[in-house]
């Protein structure tokens, strides 16, 4: 393989990695999966009896998968500006997510102990809570930035 071919091959590989996004129809699939997960979460909480902890854990995961599909699928009118806005929204989500993970345990502990004297013990937030929050921030920021463009 010549030097030029090698460079071209590397460039194509890098472009594939940079431009990775799911097709737009995954956005609709994501909405359906996330929506169905939320509905089933309510059904589990209010209409089901017995030990359904396993279902709760599965629904948490499907909700995250649905939101991830929404997050990484192409926009209907995808162009370089939309790509830039999406990257910016990931930056916001990451920064806000780190701040949330640092502050929220103290807020939860404070609120819990202020409400009742024997409040909850101090504990860090869970991975589901953090990932859900970051995905929500990313999706909201992305849509807000698109409206502002």
């Amino acid at each position: 393989m010549g030097k030029q071919n090698y460079i071209e091959c590397e460039r194509k590989g890098l472009e594939k990695l940079i431009n990775f996004r799911l097709p737009h129809y995954f956005y609709t699939i994501g909405i359906l999966v996330a929506g169905l997960s939320i509905v089933l979460m309510f059904v589990r909480a209010f209409a089901m009896e017995g030990d359904t902890e396993w279902l709760k854990l599965i629904l948490q995961k499907t909700l995250l998968v649905g939101m991830l599909f929404m997050s990484v699928s192409r926009d209907k009118d995808e162009d370089e500006m939309v790509v830039k806005l999406r990257m910016q929204s990931y930056t916001y989500a990451f920064v806000v997510g780190v701040i949330y993970a640092l502050i929220m345990p103290y807020v939860e502990y404070g609120v819990s102990n202020a409400m009742k004297p024997e409040g909850e013990a101090f504990h860090d937030i869970g991975d589901f809570q953090l990932l859900l929050f970051m995905l929500m921030v990313q999706l909201m920021c992305f849509h807000a930035l698109k409206r502002m463009r």
């Binding site: 009118d77 162009d79 370089e80 500006m81 939309v82 830039k84 698109k146 463009r149």
Partner: peptide, 22 residues
């Protein structure tokens, strides 16, 4: 040029600097 109308609007309003390709 294969972009959205909003992108052209943002470029005209100096809210977005396009890539060299664009």
């Amino acid at each position: 040029i294969g972009v959205s109308r909003q992108t052209i609007n943002s470029i005209e309003a100096n809210r977005y600097v396009p890539s060299t390709v664009l």
